[in-house]
Design a protein around this nucleic acid. Structure first.
Lengths: 133, 133
DNA sequence: CAGAATCCTCAGAGATACTG
DNA sequence: CAGTATCTCTGAGGATTCTG
């Protein structure tokens, strides 16, 4: 970060462009479902109903909405086959695939450190709320 | 992802533990300010007021709240010096530093692809709202 | 099957004022 | 200086119903 953000001053400051980048990516994948969808599409095209089954707890509304966001930003391709009953498949674009690996790094970090994190959280909570004493 | 998530079935499914990991990290850094704070702390300890200055637009409430979250999860250290006027410095823990690099990867990806993304978004919007015709 | 349309709720976040 | 304490409000997200 230091090389990206360095500016004269007592402490490095963010300029609006840099914060915009952060915001942009958080708007993209910082929501509740995007990462799960991207992960599900990692192995190839998946149908709408398969996505709904693969991602526990997602509502139709959120699935549709999130897919549209991802499609709008060019991370996901939507392919509708003119059949009856209708069939629609979603897949990662090149852009989406390039994001996948860095997102997987994040997921891996989380999996590797979640015990440590939970430990800190418990210790912190115990200290703040000293469980009656 | 394929090696992590593979399960018998028509399409890979997430189990609840994996989705929990994703949620955990998104709760941690998926909000509006965490990443900016972590980035600001990259170069070493920073005082509360310096953070407020370095991160444009953040309110005192959000700064305090986000710092507390990060501290609770063990990503950030809070050091209060018993002086008058009071001085408090925040710094990344080892855990926070280890997260920093993967977060910077995300930021770098965003910086490297934002033009492409914006292009897709504009094209998509133009197609959906055919700018009068 | 793959969604669109509605209605509703509650947490994330901003603004402002106060304090040890 | 480094926070708390309230109040308020927007919008992400859930549940349900309807349709090509």
């Amino acid at each position: 970060m230091r090389d990206v953000r360095r500016k004269p001053g007592p402490c490095a400051q963010w300029d609006s462009q840099e914060t915009d980048f952060i915001r942009e990516i958080l708007d993209l994948v910082g929501d509740k479902w995007s990462v799960l969808i991207i992960g599900t599409l990692a192995d190839g095209p998946v149908r709408y109903s398969e996505l709904a089954d693969a991602i526990p707890g997602i509502s139709q509304r959120m699935l549709t909405l999130t897919l549209k966001h991802l499609q709008r930003s060019g991370l996901v391709n939507r392919t509708a086959y003119p059949e009856v009953p209708p069939r629609v498949e979603y897949s990662l674009t090149g852009l989406g695939t390039s994001l996948l690996s860095t997102v997987l790094d994040l997921a891996a970090w989380s999996a590797g450190h979640h015990r440590e994190i939970r430990g800190h959280q418990r210790a912190f909570d115990a200290e703040v709320t000293p469980t009656k004493r």
